[in-house]
Design a protein around this nucleic acid. Structure first.
Lengths: 253, 253
DNA sequence: CCGCCGAAGTGGTCAATACCACTTTCCCCG
DNA sequence: CGGGGAAAGTGGTATTGACCACTTCGGCGG
């Protein structure tokens, strides 16, 4: 180090092997690792110190911290320091895969595949996924468990072309998004709509709740990093055990 | 054109001083003004140009743009430009007051006060608001309208001490948060929980929907800038005309 | 005529530096 | 011994300068 006046530093495009997309994410990972060794309420080293230790500018460090603050894992106190935040019962809505979501809520996620079919997309699903109606898609129905008891019923549609060799067994253990990532699908943005609904007799049976019990209906369209639709998911969550909680911030203005 | 002449209002901590609160917010306002003259899909000037025109650094400008992008009013296209985004049917959950919310959804908000009482907080509300159970609170029940038809029933609790002279008439026209601001209450963070539910006969009657129709139940606790509870609100939204929609971003990692 | 490719322009990221606002601490003065 | 106030340390904001990654578009060669 020392003076390195030659800003060109690089290190981004050159480094071998895997993608180290952005420096901020590297810092984020370092911070996450650091968090494992800290208790709730503990203070982080000061931003200036951390930036130096990690070898990044304070701006970059702050950007990484910003993310963790937004996710509720850290808490800033002006003039005092940055602290490990109280864990939230329910976390912000963004991003949640079921697996992640349940882990955050302190529950053990599980699942059972109810049905696994390959069929023509049809008009509705084809439109959602920007596919021809005759293109083959997977239609996968899963029962989602939390701590062993039913939490949601999920129906997923995805172009077969994206994961041609997918078998029913592949879904039993792992996270679906993990599978996608291994096959080179990089997830980008998604859109989710949420409506209240009531359970149908079939749903009630599977979820172990009364018929016409309140439930959430989620519909999510996930896109890859180039904006092409990847999956369309429709989920029914039981309303008695699942609720959303979110932190409101004063508007940016 | 038209687009909601919501003028420059706002500005929360307005100290009539020389120093603008923060430069970023000033820039934000400039951008908002600029947006009124643009159509959906139009491109903004480049960041470098804008930064120079507005006399701020590019980073500051970017921070302001970031906010507008997060709120869905602008859209960035890497390598191409920054564009006025398609208005969203439903906007991110953060912040929404009913009035703001409806305006964003392109509907005309309205309301009718169903009941207005002053009473002892009681155990439950007292706990929510961090008040003694015998402290006097307002309990206000309002029917919320969108384009003239019922959209939600809202029950609000707030310590009387915060707005001692509040009368029923004060609520008829204006935004509640506006009132609070005028009395020096600066809103900070809030917590909202969302559950699915079904309408009771009374709610169904007021909302004009069938009994046991799906609905959202919102509970919101709003705090001021120092973290003290300000209001506790419980709202029932009809599920057939109101739904949530949110944009999912890939996690920071 | 079409296609390729590179230059120009755009947003995305990062560094180094400076100053401000706030909190905490602790020393000095009463 | 107690209280006030400066100093130090922290996060918050802002600037300048640079390079990277991507898109767009036009010129050039096939």
């Amino acid at each position: 180090m020392g003076t390195t006046a030659r800003g060109t530093g690089g290190l981004r495009s050159g480094d071998g092997g895997k993608t180290a997309p952005t420096k901020r994410r590297a810092v984020r990972r370092e911070l996450l690792a650091m968090l494992d060794g800290l208790e709730v309420g503990d203070a982080l080293p000061s931003e200036r110190r951390l930036a130096e230790e990690l070898g990044v500018s304070r701006l970059t460090l702050r950007a990484a911290i910003d993310g963790l603050v937004a996710e509720g894992r850290l808490e800033r106190r002006h003039g005092s320091g940055t602290y490990v935040a109280e864990p939230r019962i329910a976390v912000p809505l963004t991003m949640t895969s079921f697996t992640e979501d349940m882990i955050r809520r302190g529950m053990k996620p599980g699942g059972r595949v109810l049905s696994f079919r390959v069929e023509a997309a049809g008009a509705r699903i084809g439109r959602k996924l920007s596919l021809s109606p005759v293109e083959e898609v997977f239609t996968i129905r899963r029962l989602r468990l939390a701590d062993g008891s039913p939490m949601a019923i999920e129906t997923l549609h995805m172009a077969r072309a994206l994961l041609p060799g997918l078998r029913r067994e592949d879904l039993e253990g792992r996270s679906f998004y993990e599978l996608l990532r291994e096959h080179g699908v990089v997830l980008g943005t998604g859109t989710e709509t949420i409506e209240p609904t009531v359970t149908t007799p079939e749903e009630a049976e599977l979820l172990g709740v009364p018929v016409h019990a309140p439930a959430f209906l989620f519909e999510r369209l996930t896109r890859d990093d180039r904006g092409s639709p990847v999956e369309f998911v429709r989920s029914v969550y039981r309303g008695d055990r699942y609720r959303l909680e979110l932190e409101l911030r004063p508007p940016g203005d």
